[in-house]
Nucleic acid binder design. Structure first.
Lengths: 188, 188
DNA sequence: ACTTTATTATACCGAACGGTATAATGGGTT
DNA sequence: AACCCATTATACCGTTCGGTATAATAAAGT
């Protein structure tokens, strides 16, 4: 395993637990067992390390969501696939999803938020376009794709939040419940 | 206006835009037009300033939610009142709600998260108990109060997130839609 | 054996960090 | 006028911040 990946892995662990600002470069390189110039050899700056980390991880998330959210006429099925993709990714990349969440909601002018914004926009676009496509078959959805995308993602992240706090597992049952509730509400 | 409040207001503005870690004590006192010892006279530390700020603002939010979420037999009505209380507070305390959101999702061992955790727990307890009470009238809700609390709060915060990004206003129509969608799904 | 090239270690930079010691203020009370 | 006391200003503490200059090292190619 090369030092680039070791550095990114260590940075990911530290960032996900205490945040980008609170973790110093010194601590990262000590954890990785290398020295500072090594870090600056691979990444030009602390921010460069974060960007590389996002490129490596967030692109995987986006690819998974993009693939899962292809609409083929069955909205429930597509939402379930998408929700499942989120849950699977969050389970397999727990640290990264924690960091991703914290960056997504971080203050608008913070370094972390500026770094993740493009990926957030992209994520939102993917979900929005899903609801736009679905609105062609279900006219009563029309014109609300932004709200639906935000609401659906909010529901998913609420469940992942519970998972990250060890409240429960992200089973297929939770996938079903999340989507079913989104589609039909809590009563049915 | 006394310097305590001026300091808290300035800190709030700065924290909400760039985050607790990224804002130095020096910048806070300069913005407030005072000097460092003044800050340390009123608050023992930077963290003490944050705690005082949370005491002042978050307690208002909790009080508003607590009052709005009293269940009196009509779940839809109670959820609408609660949602409206969130929206009203977020509209009137934009900066604080932005900071509150970012702290709520901040890394689990970050200073910000440790500071807001008790308020987060309390908030969650208030919403949970609402669904527990409602389950006495609606048996099919039973045993899922955690998921409902998280999901409802997630939906609310998703809308407030859109509002904070200037996507739209938090009108009564959005209150109705948010609650209605939570209760009956996106189709009806 | 020699050179090249990628990678690493040591030591340091100025600036900003959170926090504090000391003493000068200035307004109200007696 | 004398005093008190809350509040403030100046100047500084040691530490850590992100970042870098210089050179040693080690492996690979010729």
């Amino acid at each position: 395993m090369n030092n680039q990946d070791v550095l990114m892995d260590c940075a990911l662990t530290l960032f996900s637990q205490r945040g980008y600002d609170a973790v110093g470069v010194q601590e990262i390189v000590e954890t990785a067992g290398v020295t500072k110039p090594t870090l600056y050899h691979y990444f030009d700056s602390k921010r460069g390390l974060l960007d590389a980390l996002l490129r490596r991880e967030a692109s995987q998330l986006l690819a998974a969501i993009k693939k899962a959210s292809i609409y083929e006429g069955n909205l429930v099925l597509t939402l379930e696939k998408t929700c499942k993709a989120y849950f699977a990714f969050a389970s397999q990349h727990t640290n990264f999803y924690q960091m991703h969440l914290s960056m997504y909601f971080s203050p608008p002018k913070s370094e972390a938020n500026l770094a993740i914004r493009p990926y957030g926009k992209e994520q939102f676009k993917i979900l929005s376009s899903l609801f736009i496509q679905a609105a062609e078959d279900h006219g009563n959805l029309r014109g609300r794709h932004d709200r639906y995308a935000a609401g659906f993602l909010g529901s998913i992240n609420a469940m992942i939040g519970l998972y990250l706090n060890n409240k429960f597992e992200l089973s297929d049952e939770v996938v079903f419940n999340t989507v079913h509730q989104f589609m039909h509400g809590i009563f049915s």
